[in-house]
Simulated assay, not measured.
Amino acid sequence: MRIWVARPEPGAARTGARLAALGHRPLLAPVLTVAPTGFRLPEETFAGLILTSANAAAALTPAERARLRVVPTFAVGARTAALARELGFADVREAEGDARALARLVRASLPMGAHLVHAAGAERKAEPAASLIAAGYRLAVCELYAARGVARLPDAAADALAGRRLDGALHYSRRSAQAAHDLATVAGLGGAFGDLTHYCLSADVAAPLVTAGVAVHFVPDRPGEDALLAGLPAPGPTGFR
C-alpha cells in the first residue's frame, strides 16, 4: 500500500521506516510541526515524573533528566517508555497506551498526596491530570513543547491525492487527523481524502474523521503502533496503485 503518514517528525520517519520494512510505501507529509516552548521544569523535589508522549521526553534538558533520573517515571505507552529508558531514566513504568491507564498506574504506585510533575505539550487533554488531582495528588503541569499546524497541505500529499496515488493514511493523534482532513478539504481534495482507507491509533484519534463523515477502516483495541500496523493488509500486488 501507498500510505500517507501525517504525524509530525521525528515520529513520521520512524513510522515510515517500519512501513517500508513491512513492504508498504510510505509518504511522509506531516501536517504538524513540534517545537519547544522554552518553559522548564520547576526546581522542586518530585515523587514522580509523568510523560504522556515521546515528544515530552525528548523536550527535557540533560540537566532535568539527570535531576529526575531515579524518580519513578510514568510513560503513557511503549514508545514513550522506550525513549525514557534510552535517555537514562532508571525506573520507567509503562501504561497501556492511554491517559486514563496512566493515571491508574500512578495511583497504584504512589500514595495519595504525592507531588508529581507532568512534562506535557501545550495542546493537551484533561487526562491524566483531572483524575490525579481528583484523587488527591499534587501535580505541576509544564508545557515543554507545542505542535503547530502547517499553513497548507504539503505538496507531496496534495500531488498524491490529486493523482489518486494513495491507498491509505495513518493517524496518530486527534489533531493531526483533523488537520489532514481540513487541509485536504481546503485544497479541494476532500473527496480523494475521504476515499482513502484510514487507520487510527484510537477511537479518540478517529473522532474528528467520523464527525466529518469520513469512514475509518481500522482502530486497534488498545492504542499502540504495533497494534495499529497489525491492522494493515499484507503487502502484495493488489495493495498498490
Rank of each mutant, 00 (worst) to 15 (best):
R18L: 15
P154M: 11
G163D: 15
H115C: 05
R165A: 13
E43D: 15
A160L: 12
L22G: 14
K125F: 06
T52N: 00
H217P: 03
A82Y: 02
P235M: 01
R100C: 06
T33L: 00
H171G: 14
A234N: 06
A207R: 13
R174I: 05
A63G: 12
D155T: 15
P111F: 10
K125I: 03
P223D: 10
G239Q: 09
G163E: 12
D195L: 13
L87V: 00
D98F: 01
R40S: 02
A179R: 10
P8S: 00
F240L: 05
P62C: 03
L116N: 12
P26V: 15
R152A: 12
A59F: 13
R152V: 11
L51D: 01
R18P: 09
L41A: 01
P30E: 04
R14C: 04
G121H: 15
L183H: 13
D98S: 01
A29H: 07
T33A: 01
G168I: 08
V5M: 01
A20D: 04
L87P: 00
P128K: 04
L116E: 05
L27R: 08
A135Q: 01
L83A: 00
A119D: 08
G23M: 03
E225S: 15
E94W: 10
E127W: 04
E143I: 05
T45Y: 02
R65H: 03
A29I: 08
L60A: 06
H24D: 06
H198T: 10
A6F: 02
A212E: 08
R14L: 13
Y172I: 11
G191M: 09
L68P: 07
E64R: 00
A126D: 11
L83N: 08
A13L: 10
G113W: 10
G113C: 05
G48P: 05
R175K: 09
R2T: 00
E143T: 04
A120H: 09
V76G: 03
G224L: 13
A192P: 07
V70H: 10
H171E: 07
G231R: 14
E64T: 09
L189M: 02
G149F: 09
E43S: 14
V216P: 11
F240G: 06
I50Q: 03
G136L: 10
V70M: 12
R79L: 13
L161E: 07
D98K: 02
S173G: 01
A147C: 12
G23D: 08
S176M: 11
A207K: 04
V106Y: 12
T33K: 04
